[in-house]
């Protein structure tokens, strides 16, 4: 559905070099800090930037082709909408531009629980509300087949943020290609099926699962156990420290961080420790590696086209 063929591009201060990548339907993340070039890749796919070398293909055509543009929705962090319009009017104009049947604005907005914004002028909305309305337009358009989203869970209205992951997955299941650019491994892990790691404008690794990276991370795996109170946390630290598979343990308020080589063994060890200390953990969470750890692990362990 989308392909980069040896693409190099520059849009100050961002640059990408020698990108070759193809992605089909599904949710994909481009992981890297903003300066690594993720937003520029989205701009290239959205026809808002042009490559200096190589070729970008979207839905079999050029991103600047009129028929392709109508099927692509791009949501940069600083999304702007025609601010003289009301929310309902903007959605109607968008439908007319994309040449799709008009639908009730309230119905569309309900996807992200934003029905109350329907009659509000866009110029009266906060940045987060504005971005959420643009998200609604992209998510509910029947024409859009490629969604390009920069930092999908950042700068979104609080009412909408909880519904975004499900809505993105629903679009992917309908056959859309959803590409997210994010610096957050947690967001990437929560939303995407596979991950492309960028560093300084180049692809340094590709992986299907962030969890697999944990095993390759130089600093090993980390597990976070949240307990109900400080006493339980201390009891858990004492119990977990006796486990053989645990390399280290940190106490941070009511949270306990457990370090080790194997994430599965760590989880079992934490479970045994909780049972022996007779505490009931509130949450048990695998801690994602840092961006640098993940990029290093993805580059050395897993690579290829998702």
């Amino acid at each position: 559905m989308i392909a980069f063929e040896g693409v190099s591009a520059l849009r100050k201060p961002l640059a990408v070099t020698g990108i070759t990548l193809s992605l089909g339907p599904g949710v994909h993340s481009i992981v890297g800090a903003q300066r690594d070039g993720g937003p520029l890749l989205l701009a290239l796919l959205g026809g808002a930037a042009r490559p200096r070398a190589g070729r970008v293909r979207v839905l079999g055509g050029s991103p600047t082709q009129a028929s392709v543009r109508k099927q692509v929705a791009r949501l940069p962090l600083d999304t702007v909408l025609p601010d003289a319009l009301r929310v309902g009017e903007a959605l109607a104009v968008a439908a007319a531009i994309r040449r799709e049947p008009a639908r009730g604005a309230s119905d569309r907005l309900s996807v992200l629980a934003l029905e109350s914004l329907e009659t509000r002028p866009l110029r009266s909305l906060s940045r987060a509300e504005m971005r959420s309305v643009a998200f609604v337009e992209a998510l509910t358009s029947s024409q859009v087949r490629v969604l390009l989203v920069e930092e999908p869970l950042v700068g979104i209205d609080a009412r909408a943020v909880g519904r975004v992951p499900q809505a993105l997955r629903a679009r992917a299941q309908e056959g859309c290609t959803v590409i997210l650019s994010t610096a957050s491994l947690r967001d990437a892990g929560e939303l995407a099926d596979d991950h492309v790691f960028l560093r300084h404008g180049s692809v340094v690794g590709v992986t299907r699962s962030l969890e697999t990276l944990v095993a390759f991370s130089q600093n090993g795996a980390r597990l976070l156990v949240v307990t109900r109170d400080l006493a339980s946390a201390r009891a858990l630290v004492a119990a977990v420290a006796r486990e053989n598979d645990v390399d280290g343990v940190d106490l941070d308020g009511i949270s306990v961080r457990v370090h080790g080589r194997d994430i599965l063994a760590l989880a079992k060890a934490a479970g045994r420790a909780a049972a022996s200390a007779q505490i009931d953990p509130v949450e048990l969470r695998v801690q994602a590696p840092t961006l640098d750890e993940a990029r290093a692990a993805a580059g050395t362990s897993v690579s290829g086209t998702p």
């Binding site: 600047t64 543009r69 099927q71 791009r74 702007v80 025609p82 601010d83 104009v93």
Partner: peptide, 19 residues
């Protein structure tokens, strides 16, 4: 134009797929 350049003021509608 709302205090923006002509190019920047096309972005809102361009984000809906217009050239």
């Amino acid at each position: 134009l709302g205090g923006r350049s002509l190019r920047a003021s096309t972005e809102p509608l361009a984000s809906f797929g217009a050239a």
